[in-house]
């Protein structure tokens, strides 16, 4: 039996993250290829949440529902994972590519003397991984010169592991014995209710310079609402003050990988493309039929977005209505 693959399941504020299911599906494949067990360390969840990890592919789950792990404390979370790692001696540690996962990965790599690769998009059983460099303009094949690999895995690339009711596996409590921390959690302020996070959105509708004003962004929101999509924006729109920074997609904003990305009035500068060219399908709506976004697009629609969007929304509603009626 070779060394296990360790998945880090972070249940911040008591909530399971959908990315954990993606890590379990990647981890399961790696574990099967190396004939090794898939172990999950669950930070911030109890035996019931641990059982779900087993049903989604883990052979063994070490859980701790210590209150101090409800919010991200990179020192304490790292201690919990290191405690599990000391017990399991894993060949690879898989974390989500979000703020929490990335923060932890840094500390784990140093403490484990491990090779670290952030935002990996492919993992080969032999050990190599692929990740973007120069903001996705190049793909780097990374090799490891260390026995342990710490990897943060890009969201939305791997299918989430399905739940198989009754799948068997071990569930053990990790007797978490935290050392000191110098980080004190004060408060958490959630984003506006009902907003879909860009990082885990299957569909995104983004507006750019072509939107032309703060009030006019309502058209983007309307289309997003009709498509069940998150709202994104280009740097030009954010810098103009039309929409807050957290909506920014691109080099200086978020990197996203939705199934569908609808770019409205975004010309497609390389900095924006860097953040969204991983989308499965790109729809561009632009008055300039020759702009880079229109050339990159899976589907390009030349025209005025303010004329097109209400018509698209009406068309979508009409078909939804028809689907319900049928």
């Amino acid at each position: 039996m070779s060394q296990p693959i360790l998945v880090v399941a972070l249940n911040l504020r008591g909530r399971a993250s959908p990315q954990t299911w993606e890590l379990l599906s990647v981890g399961r494949r790696l574990a099967d290829a190396s004939k090794s067990p898939l172990v999950a360390v669950l930070a911030g969840g109890g035996p019931e949440a641990a059982r779900e990890l087993v049903e989604r592919g883990a052979d063994r789950v070490l859980w701790t529902d210590d209150d101090r792990l409800q919010e991200l404390n990179e020192e304490l979370h790292a201690q919990a994972v290191l405690q599990a790692a000391a017990k399991e001696n894993p060949a690879a540690v898989l974390l989500p590519s979000n703020v929490a996962g990335r923060s932890l990965a840094c500390r784990l790599a140093v403490k484990l003397g491990a090779g670290l690769a952030m935002d990996v998009s492919e993992i080969e059983a032999a050990g190599q991984v692929k990740r973007g460099a120069y903001s996705g303009n190049l793909v780097a094949d990374v090799e490891f010169q260390a026995p342990v690999r710490v990897l943060t895995v890009t969201a939305m690339l791997f299918a989430p592991a399905a739940r198989q009711a009754g799948r068997s596996g071990e569930v053990q409590e990790l007797k978490f014995a935290p050392g000191p921390t110098r980080t004190e959690f004060k408060s958490f302020q959630a984003e506006e209710a009902g907003e879909i996070d860009l990082g885990s959105a299957e569909r995104i509708v983004s507006g750019g310079r072509g939107v032309g004003g703060k009030d006019k962004f309502s058209a983007i929101r309307e289309l997003a609402h009709a498509l069940g999509a998150a709202v994104g924006a280009s740097r030009a729109a954010v810098d103009s003050g039309w929409i807050p920074y957290r909506h920014q997609v691109g080099l200086t904003g978020r990197t996203v990988r939705p199934k569908l990305y609808v770019a409205c009035g975004i010309s497609g500068q390389i900095q924006h493309l860097a953040g969204m060219s991983g989308a499965n399908a790109i729809v561009a709506i632009n008055t300039d039929p020759e702009c880079p976004m229109m050339q990159q697009a899976t589907v390009a629609v030349a025209g005025d977005m303010f004329e097109l969007i209400p018509l698209i929304v009406a068309e979508v509603k009409k078909r939804k209505g028809a689907a319900v009626a049928a």
């Binding site: 790599a109 003397g113 491990a114 090779g115 670290l116 690769a117 190599q128 973007g132 460099a133 996705g136 303009n137 190049l138 793909v139 780097a140 094949d141 990374v142 090799e143 490891f144 010169q145 260390a146 060219s277 790109i282 039929p289 050339q295 990159q296 697009a297 899976t298 589907v299 390009a300 629609v301 030349a302």
Partner: peptide, 21 residues
Amino acid sequence: GSKTKVARCTHPPARGAGTRV
């Protein structure tokens, strides 16, 4: 002193030609 090494870089595959509506 490094634990990783970039074996090689490649350009990501170009997107196929799209549909114009």
